[in-house]
Structure formats: C-alpha cells, structure tokens
C-alpha cells in the first residue's frame, strides 16, 4: 500500500526535470524529449488521482484522458520533428541559439 501523495511527488519531480531540460539544453531534439517527459509526468498524476479518488466510472475517465494526451503527444512529435528537419535544411544547424532570424 503506497500513499497517493508519493505518486504526486514523483510526478512533480519528473515534471521539473522536464522543465529544467527545456531551460538548459540547446538541442531542440532534447527540448522535445523534455516536453514528452513533462507530458508523461502529467499522465502519471492523472492515473494516480483516478485510481485513488475515482469510483469505477470516473477512474476509467481518467485513463481515457491519458489516452487522449498520448495521442496529442504523438501528433505533436510528428509535426515538431518535421519542423526541425525543415529548419535543418534551410539553416544547416539546429542549435536554438542560431534560430534568431526573426530578430530585428
């Protein structure tokens, strides 16, 4: 028997690692992976709350929301990686420090 708070603390820690990755890494691919990690942490909190507080129907609703989040993450990764490939073709670099063409 594990208190549900432990799952929430773990989810917060994983989310923070993802946010830290977005802040300190310069490789947009790793920034994308960090975003996936944050989505995963949110999913973990979703399922933990659904399991702890839900009865039969609401518990399954939480799982269905997680299913939708996974789908949206898949779509986001497909479009995002296509954008990264396109940026690499035009600039021959994907370092986020070089993506400043819109600066005046």
């Amino acid at each position: 028997m594990v208190p549900v708070n432990y799952y929430i603390i773990l989810s917060a820690i994983l989310f923070t690692i993802g946010a830290l990755g977005v802040l300190i890494r310069r490789n947009p691919l790793i920034i994308f992976m960090s975003i996936e990690l944050m989505l995963n942490a949110a999913n973990l909190a979703f399922v933990a709350f659904a399991r702890a507080t839900g009865d039969a129907a609401t518990g399954y609703s939480g799982q269905i929301f997680v299913f939708f989040v996974i789908t949206v993450a898949a779509a986001e990764v497909a479009v995002g990686l296509a954008l990264i490939v396109q940026i690499f073709r035009t600039k021959h670099s994907i370092n986020v420090d070089n993506m400043n063409s819109l600066k005046g």
Binding site: V2, P3, N5, A12, F15
Partner: peptide, 22 residues
C-alpha cells in the same frame, strides 16, 4: 527548477494532501 518542485510539492501534498492509498 528547485523553486518549482518545492512549490508544487508544498501545494499538492503539503497544503491539500490527497487522501487515499494506492
């Protein structure tokens, strides 16, 4: 990041701990 994790743990677990065991 340290502030974020401290605040989220404080708000989610310290202030309003979710009842129940897994």
């Amino acid at each position: 990041a340290f502030i974020l994790v401290a605040e989220s743990v404080y708000l989610l677990v310290g202030r309003a701990p979710a009842a129940g065991d897994i």
